[in-house]
């Protein structure tokens, strides 16, 4: 077997404009957990070994480098660790299918608000919230990881488009604030 080298979609690049920084983050393995009808108990037991549970809708949780993100009805993504043995769910590796962008800095909500049709202000979108929505016309999962920090999960095939869109919005917001780009 040849040794294959996994490459990230955006080669770990980063960019700063005004007060906001955009960067690709390496999050490690991404595993989809889709619970079968009646499988909830078995899944809960498996996730307990990591100290996690299936998240409530529109939320994510973290424990010792492992993150679990709500991605749909009876479905979640386990990120950052190899999945434990899980009975009662369809468990599939999605690691190579996604690119994760970190967008952070003061005024970050104003940047994303240019593309995202939901209220991203801290009061409406607190830390720990994760939603499925759109970035322009791309389906994304958006996580609030800090007061001024989001992570945007996008299909790998759209990574460079998403990067371009966010970077453009960063320039426009910076220009409006009179910050030198």
């Amino acid at each position: 077997m040849p040794e294959l080298i996994a490459k990230s979609a955006l080669e770990g690049r980063s960019s700063t404009s005004g007060t906001v920084t955009l960067a690709e983050v390496a999050v490690g393995p991404i595993t989809s957990i889709a619970v079968f009808p009646g499988g909830a108990k078995a899944v809960a037991k498996g996730l307990k070994t990591l100290g996690l549970a299936m998240p409530e809708p529109n939320s994510f949780a973290e424990k010792k480098g492992a993150r679990i993100v709500w991605t749909g009805r009876d479905q979640a993504f386990l990120i950052g660790v190899a999945p434990p043995v899980l009975e009662g769910a369809a468990v599939t590796d999605q690691s190579d299918g996604w690119a994760v962008l970190s967008v952070s800095g003061a005024g970050v909500a104003d940047v994303l608000a240019r593309w995202v049709p939901i209220d991203l202000r801290l009061a409406a979108f607190p830390v720990g919230r994760a939603v499925r929505t759109q970035l322009n016309h791309m389906n994304v999962v958006i996580l609030r990881v800090g007061d001024h920090a989001f992570e945007v999960m996008v299909f790998r095939s759209m990574a460079r488009t998403a990067w371009h869109e966010v970077e453009t919005a960063m320039h426009m917001v910076a220009a409006r604030l009179g910050t030198k780009i």
């Binding site: 809708p57 529109n58 009805r73 939901i118 939603v131 929505t133 759109q134």
Partner: peptide, 11 residues
């Protein structure tokens, strides 16, 4: 019922 209040364009 799952995601909350959303814009028409998502549907």
């Amino acid at each position: 019922p799952l995601c909350g209040d959303r814009d028409r364009r998502e549907f």
